[in-house]
Amino acid sequence: SEIVVAMYDFQATEAHDLRLERGQEYIILEKNDLHWWRARDKYGSEGYIPSNYVTGKK
């Protein structure tokens, strides 16, 4: 599975969105859409994140 790191904070506005915290790692579950990826955080929460807010883990 692909691990990404959040470059920016993202506040979830929709129920299906996942909040991003800058510097935290997330697991990508689905990339069915170019701009919104389904991800899981370290607490096990899942939701959609803006793909341009994250970068591949170095």
Rank of each mutant, 00 (worst) to 15 (best):
A15H: 11
Y8E: 08
W37D: 00
W37G: 00
H35T: 11
Y8N: 06
T55G: 06
E14Q: 12
E46P: 01
Q11D: 13
Y48G: 02
E30C: 10
L29T: 05
T13C: 14
D41N: 07
R22E: 09
V5F: 09
E46D: 04
K57W: 09
H35N: 12
R40E: 04
D33Q: 08
T13W: 10
D9A: 06
V5I: 13
R19S: 15
T55Q: 11
S45A: 14
A39H: 03
A15M: 11
Y43T: 09
W37C: 05
L29S: 02
T55A: 10
G44L: 03
D41P: 01
T55Y: 11
L29P: 00
T13H: 12
S1A: 14
L29G: 02
R38Y: 15
S45P: 01
Q11W: 13
K31Y: 05
Y8P: 00
T13I: 13
S1N: 13
A15P: 15
F10R: 12
T55M: 09
E46C: 06
H35A: 09
R38Q: 05
T55P: 02
I28P: 00
N52W: 13
N32H: 12
E25D: 08
Y26F: 02
K31M: 07
R40I: 07
S1W: 15
Y43K: 07
P50Q: 05
V4H: 04
F10G: 00
N52R: 11
S1V: 15
D9K: 05
Y26R: 00
D17I: 15
S1T: 13
I27V: 13
M7L: 15
V4D: 00
S45R: 15
K31Q: 07
A6G: 03
I3W: 10
N52E: 13
G44R: 02
K57C: 13
V4R: 02
Y26A: 00
S45H: 14
R22I: 10
L18P: 00
L20E: 02
D33C: 12
Q24S: 10
I27W: 11
E25M: 10
Y53L: 13
R38W: 15
Y48T: 07
W36Q: 07
A15T: 11
I49E: 01
K42Q: 12
Y43L: 07
G23A: 03
M7G: 02
I28T: 01
L34V: 13
D17N: 15
Q11I: 14
Q11V: 14
N52Q: 13
D9Q: 04
E21C: 10
Q24E: 14
E25K: 07
E21L: 07
V4Y: 11
T55I: 13
A39Y: 03
F10Q: 03
K42R: 11
I27Y: 10
R38K: 14
H16S: 13
T55K: 12
R22C: 10
E14F: 13
E14V: 10
W37K: 00
E2V: 11
H35Y: 13
L29H: 00
G47R: 02
Y48C: 13
R40S: 06
K58Y: 15
P50F: 05
M7F: 06
Y8M: 12
Q11E: 14
D41A: 01
E46L: 03
Y8I: 08
D17W: 15
E30H: 08
M7C: 14
Q11Y: 13
V54N: 03
S51E: 04
S45M: 14
W36A: 04
K57A: 10
P50S: 02
Q11L: 12
G23H: 06
D41G: 02
Q11G: 09
I3K: 08
D33W: 07
G23D: 06
S51L: 05
R19C: 14
R38P: 02
K31A: 07
R19Q: 12
W36Y: 09
K58D: 15
K58E: 14
A12H: 05
G47H: 03
W37N: 00
Y48I: 09
M7E: 06
E25N: 06
I49C: 04
I49A: 00
Y8T: 05
Y26D: 00
W36G: 06
L20N: 01
R22T: 10
E25V: 08
D17A: 15
E46Q: 06
K42D: 03
V5H: 04
Y43D: 09
Y43C: 09
I27M: 11
G56R: 12
Y53R: 08
E30P: 01
G44H: 04
N32E: 12
Y53K: 07
Y43W: 13
Y43E: 09
D9N: 10
N32K: 12
D17M: 15
V54H: 02
N32C: 15
Y8C: 15
I3V: 14
K57S: 10
K42I: 09
D9W: 04
L34H: 12
G56V: 14
I28G: 00
D41F: 02
Y48Q: 07
R19A: 13
D9V: 05
A6Q: 02
H16P: 06
Y8Q: 08
Y26P: 00
S51I: 06
S45V: 13
T55W: 07
